[in-house]
Design a protein around this nucleic acid. Structure first.
Lengths: 135, 135
DNA sequence: CTTGACTCCGTACTTCAGTACGGACTGAAG
DNA sequence: CTTCAGTCCGTACTGAAGTACGGAGTCAAG
C-alpha cells in the first residue's frame, strides 16, 4: 500500500476517497485535482486535502453538477478573483435553490403517495406528474 | 405543423414539451413514453398528458434521477401493484431527502460565501469543501 | 395530382464520465 | 539483488443520454 508519513500513494488515496485509481488520474487530466509534486521519488503522494476535494466532487455530482461546473466551484477555493467567484457562487446559488424547490415538491408528493398508498386504488392521474407539472 | 383537434404531431409535441423530436423517439424506444396509436392514418398524435410526462422526465432528470429510475417512478402512475409502488416511492423518498440535505448545506455555504466575499481575502481553506466534507 | 414540409425508421455519431488494458518503471521486502 | 505489488502513462473501450442523417412514406395546400 506504500502509505507512509510522506503521504498516501494513489492506491491508498483512491481507497480513502472511495474512488477508483483511474478516476483520480482522470480528474487530474481534467484539472480537477492538482498533479502533485514528487518530492520523494517518482511516485506521487496525496494528503487529506486531496481526499476532501474528491469527496466534494462526488457530493456535488450527486447534486447534479457536471464536472465542468464543479471545476468552476473549485476555483472559488483559491480566494482570488473575488468578483468572478462571487458571480459564479450567485449563479450556483440560484441553481441550487431551483433544485431545492423541485426536490421539496417531489418530497411532499412522494411522502403523500406512500401515506395514502392503500387508499388510492384506481386513481388515473399521477400525483407525481402533477406535482412537477405545476411549475 | 399538422396541429389539429386530433392531437399534436410529433413536431408540435416536441416544441410543446421543449425537446427535440429525436428525443421523443428515443424515449419511446426506452419505454418512457407510450407509442401512441395511429387512429387517423400513419402519423402519430399526442396529447397534453404526453407533454406533462416529458416535462416530468426533464424535471426528474434535473434532480439527478437517471432515465431508468424515472421509468420506475413513472410506473407508480398506474396505481396497480401498490406494494411495489410503495416500496419504490419510499426508496426514492430517501434519495430525495438525502439530496435535500446536501443541497441545503450547499445553499447555506454558497449564500454565506456570496455574503462575505469581500471580507475573506486570503482564506486558504474552501468553505464549500468543508461544508460537504462534514458528512 | 403534384409539391414540399413533415413523419417514420434504422443506423451511426457525439458527449460526458468514467473503466480497462498493457507495457515500462519503481521501490519496499525477502 | 531479485521479485512483484503497485505506479505511470497513453490509448482504447464502455454506458448513458441523446443528436444527426438519409431514404422512404404521408398529407394538406395549391
Amino acid at each position: 500500500m506504500l502509505a507512509t508519513a510522506r503521504g498516501l500513494s494513489i492506491g491508498a488515496f483512491g481507497a480513502a476517497a472511495g474512488v477508483n485509481v483511474e478516476t483520480i488520474r482522470f480528474y487530474q487530466r481534467k484539472g480537477l485535482l492538482p498533479e502533485p509534486g514528487r518530492a520523494y521519488g517518482t511516485i506521487r503522494r496525496y494528503g487529506e486535502a486531496d481526499v476532501a476535494r474528491v469527496r466534494f466532487i462526488k457530493s456535488a455530482q450527486r447534486l447534479g453538477f457536471s464536472l465542468e461546473e464543479i471545476g468552476g466551484l473549485l476555483t472559488l477555493e483559491d480566494g482570488r478573483h473575488c468578483a468572478e467567484a462571487r458571480t459564479l457562487a450567485e449563479q450556483k446559488l440560484d441553481d441550487v435553490r431551483a433544485k431545492l424547490d423541485d426536490l421539496r415538491r417531489m418530497e411532499s408528493v412522494l411522502a403523500e403517495l406512500v401515506e395514502r398508498c392503500d387508499a388510492s386504488r384506481g386513481t388515473v392521474t399521477c400525483p407525481l406528474i402533477a406535482a412537477l407539472h405545476a411549475h
